[in-house]
Simulated assay, not measured.
Amino acid sequence: MKTTPHYRFVLLILLITSFLTSAHAFQKDKDKFVVVLDAGHGGHDSGNIGNGHKESSIALNIVLQIGKELEKNKGIKVIYTRKKDVFVTLRGRAKIANDADADLFVSVHCNAHHSQASGTETFVLGVANTKRNMEIAKKENEVIFLEADYEKHYEGFDPNSPESLIALSLLQEDYTENSIKLARMIEDNFSKGLKRKSRGLKQASLWVMHNTYMPSVLVEVGFLTNKAEGRFLNSSSGKTKMATAIRKAILDYKSHIEQNVGENIYQGNSESADIEIEGEPQIFENVVFKVQIAASSKKLAPKSYNFKGLKDISREKVGNTYKYYHGYTSDYTIVKQLQIEARAKGYKDCFVVAHKDGNKIDVSEALKSASN
């Protein structure tokens, strides 16, 4: 990507290829938690070189340290988009992640700015609501132009088009919640563990094509253009500290996801108590409401004893993730009560989802439907 003195962020590479993408090369690792680590830039794309520090080299060093420690865990498979100073196309990085049928995609970069701005930022895909985020997304997606035959491979996508950017965010909607969980864990480790300045969790419309089916984050570990921060990130201890913080967040995220689907079997009555429904019925024709209580790479039987006694459990597989739901009703009043019940059982982050004619729709859209 061409280096500019203006906002310098680097893009989150997510997944391309179609829904039918297979993972034959990694079938032996299907019983493991698969993490794809992406070191930004590489080869003729050095990224930013604030204060003479090379982004592509720093990002690669951090990624290799993260991977080395994660590989000590027998339950984790680590895959790298690059392990040396080479240029990898966006579609190439995406293919690696898709073929791996990964559970997580983590991209590491260094920031730059024309001022002495400092601090970490972790991005997840989302609609860019501010002018600043829109400009960031445009600049980061422009790395496409470094690739030969980009018109052929990116099907007319225009990094400068607001419509294109907004469309990107819709493709990762199912994974936003878990992406945000990981992003928060990473930023908390930076700010609370390392006492680094955190600029927080951000959302921007970064490049995605076709089917994206894993939680993904882009981590900006700091500004090379800030003299003090650049020196820290270029030092051996600085890179090790940032790698350790990210690695711990990945392990905590894995633990959180596994515990959230009932790792500790409920010891009480396998049948949950009947709930008393309050309020008038709100029936929506051809709409089914459920409460999503968990999402995980683990496949569990949809039985009440696996979900703290909740009954009427269903399971859906999306990519490499299993989603677990409580309830099945066309009555919005009932589903809200089911959500209260799930929260009382410990599923604090559960939320209502809606399907119409077999397709997932926004709950707000469902509620606009004519009531019977």
Rank of each mutant, 00 (worst) to 15 (best):
G238S: 06
T176H: 08
A344G: 09
A344W: 01
D158T: 06
M242E: 14
H24R: 13
V287H: 10
D149A: 11
T321A: 05
N226P: 02
H355Q: 10
F157S: 03
N133I: 08
L90G: 12
Y253H: 04
D45A: 10
K68A: 14
K74V: 04
H44T: 12
E276P: 03
G222N: 00
W207V: 12
I49L: 11
H210E: 12
V143H: 03
A273W: 03
K84T: 12
G52P: 02
L194M: 02
S169Q: 05
G319E: 01
K2L: 14
F284H: 07
K139P: 00
D99G: 13
K197H: 12
R231S: 15
E135K: 15
V288T: 14
S364H: 05
D158R: 04
I334A: 01
E285M: 08
Q27S: 14
G309R: 00
E163A: 11
A39V: 00
Q282N: 05
I58N: 04
Y332A: 01
N51C: 03
E229P: 01
L171T: 10
A117D: 11
H24A: 15
N189A: 06
S237F: 11
T81L: 02
V221D: 03
S164R: 07
H109I: 09
F26Q: 05
D174M: 04
L218N: 02
S371R: 15
D158L: 07
G92F: 03
G43A: 09
V221N: 03
S191D: 02
K345N: 03
R343Y: 05
L60R: 05
A97D: 00
G43W: 06
R8Q: 13
M1V: 14
E121K: 11
G50S: 06
E55R: 00
E220M: 05
H355W: 08
R82W: 01
S371E: 15
G262I: 03
H256D: 09
V86I: 15
N260M: 04
S56E: 14
V288E: 13
F232W: 14
V127M: 10
A148C: 06
L11H: 12
S236M: 11
S46R: 14
Q292T: 05
T329Q: 08
F9E: 15
H53K: 14
K181E: 02
L12M: 14
H114R: 13
S369V: 13
H256C: 00
V221F: 02
N160E: 14
K299Y: 04
F307A: 00
G40W: 03
A102W: 01
T21H: 10
N129H: 11
F157W: 04
E276D: 14
I66L: 08
